[in-house]
């Protein structure tokens, strides 16, 4: 079904912005590695922009192979130390107008526009063509980002060129860590294709003590946390642990209530998300974005709550599910 805005279009906007940023990097003489850094982001933009064109020209399989090869290339550029960072852009004597609290308007407009679009425009159509497809929230975020950029230019009297030079400064602080979440998601996909989860299920079932209910509850919660630490994503751990331990033993043998077993099991997995570098978009990228010296600073701040919450979830499950 055709819609007015599709997720592919959102990806193309991200791709075009990345092209603009890689030009800004290319022309940034303060970055000693500006050529390889620009190459890194250009490869990334290529992967975002060309899947449709490649698919039409060579078919889906070859298109995915070319994009896969580009992903491997960009990992190699970053892995071999090709991504560097430049200094903050000079002001070139541009005067900075004091704008006071109007500065908050563009960033506060983002949630407002996201909510307005995803609640107000969801399911609506213009001339018989629906506006959003099933990824409405993400598409609404893209609309909101463009509106916010326009507002930011209006409020500060800045230009988009200036905005992309500043985006270059921000992306330099994050560096190659910016694409770590995507590479980890790819690894998750490889694990799924290799049926790594099935192997972990076999291992857990071997360990399961079938008669001590509390021990099974504890193993289920702990298993969710540990498997999430390995995979970086509780959604990947959930089907494995729930079908390996929760359904056959806790529900079918011991008569537990499925709803709390599922809900609390998932949250036990989130305790793992809080302490693993594999959940890079939550734990590693913010550390880079906030310019922390310690790459694991965010994880260290989260660990005490994560451990306490894991224990709390085991106790809650034992009392609420039976």
């Amino acid at each position: 079904m055709k819609t007015l805005i599709t997720f592919d279009m959102v990806a193309y906007v991200v791709g075009l912005m990345t092209v603009a940023i890689s030009f800004a990097i290319f022309s940034d003489r303060s970055n000693r590695k500006r050529f390889t850094t620009a190459l890194f982001w250009a490869l990334f933009a290529f992967c975002l922009l060309f899947d449709g064109i490649l698919g039409n020209a060579f078919g889906k399989h070859v298109a995915h192979q070319i994009i896969g090869a580009a992903v491997v290339a960009l990992v190699l550029v970053a892995g071999l130390g090709g991504v560097g960072r430049g200094a903050a852009p000079a002001t070139n004597g541009e005067s900075i107008r004091p704008v006071g609290n109007w500065l908050f308007l563009p960033s506060l407009s983002i949630p407002v526009v996201v909510i307005a679009c995803s609640v107000g425009l969801k399911g609506r159509a213009i001339g018989g063509v629906p506006i959003f497809d099933d990824q409405a929230t993400l598409e609404a975020l893209a609309v909101a980002a463009i509106v916010a950029l326009a507002l930011a230019c209006a409020v500060t009297r800045g230009t988009p060129v200036q905005a992309f030079r500043e985006a270059r400064r921000l992306i330099d602080t994050v560096g190659w860590v910016a694409i770590l979440p995507i590479v980890l998601a790819i690894l998750g996909g490889v694990f799924a294709a290799a049926k790594t989860g099935e192997s972990i299920k076999v291992l857990t079932l071997m360990l399961a003590p079938h008669h001590e209910r509390f021990l099974v509850v504890a193993l289920y919660c702990l298993g969710m946390a540990v498997f999430t630490i390995i995979m970086g994503n509780a959604f990947a751990a959930f089907p494995v642990m729930a079908s390996g331990l929760a359904l056959p033993i806790l529900v079918k043998e011991m008569g537990g209530n499925p709803a709390p077993l599922m809900a609390i099991g998932m949250v036990a997995g989130y305790c793992g998300t809080l302490v693993t570098p594999m959940a890079a978009n939550f734990n590693i990228m913010p550390a880079a974005l906030l310019e922390l010296k310690d790459r694991y600073g965010v994880i260290k701040a989260q660990a005490p709550t994560a451990i306490a919450m894991l224990c709390a979830n085991i106790v809650l499950m034992e009392f609420l599910a039976f």
Partner: peptide
């Protein structure tokens, strides 16, 4: 390689943060 490309495409939503960098950068500069 094909699997890597395929999974990259399904993980593109993780790149959406790039959309707001120009706006945040401009506001921070001001």
């Amino acid at each position: 390689v094909e699997l890597i490309g395929d999974k990259f495409l399904s993980a593109r939503s993780l790149a959406l943060f790039i959309l707001i960098l120009p706006m945040i950068g401009l506001l921070e500069r001001h």
